[in-house]
Amino acid sequence: MSQMQPGEEVWTTVVGTIRKGMNVIAPDGSSIGLVAGVHGGEVLFEGGDSIPLTLVDGVGEEGVLLQRRGDETFGLGAQP
């Protein structure tokens, strides 16, 4: 894991540590933008768009990974 650089903007969230400039990666692997910040439960993109943190599956070295939506298990809950 990379070390935090002096002056680097980072936000510790329930999904992981998000850094300014990270790629936001859709479930198909495409980049949908770069992180400008995190505020009020939203990931803010450079250019003004945002997504709720609830759509983030995790944070890795490659970027902020969005979870799949509309798959066969979405909304079913955990099995006992």
Rank of each mutant, 00 (worst) to 15 (best):
A78E: 13
G7H: 03
P80E: 13
V59F: 01
M4Y: 00
V24L: 06
N23F: 10
E62L: 09
L53R: 01
S2N: 10
Q3V: 09
L55M: 12
G47V: 08
E42I: 02
T12R: 14
D71C: 10
T12N: 14
G63E: 03
D28T: 08
G16Q: 06
E9N: 07
P6A: 09
G63M: 05
I51M: 09
L44M: 14
T17F: 01
S2L: 12
G41V: 07
D28H: 07
E62F: 01
A36R: 12
T17W: 00
D71T: 13
T17A: 07
E61D: 15
F74Y: 11
E72S: 14
V10W: 07
G40R: 11
E72T: 06
H39T: 08
M1R: 03
T17I: 15
L53K: 02
I32Y: 01
V56E: 01
I32M: 14
Q79H: 09
T12E: 15
A78V: 10
I32F: 03
M22P: 04
D71N: 15
W11E: 00
A26G: 03
V64L: 07
D28Q: 10
E9K: 15
G41D: 04
L53E: 02
D28S: 13
G37K: 03
G47C: 08
V15A: 09
T54H: 07
Q3P: 00
E62A: 14
G75C: 06
Q67H: 11
E72D: 13
T73N: 12
L55G: 05
G60W: 00
L65Y: 11
L53W: 02
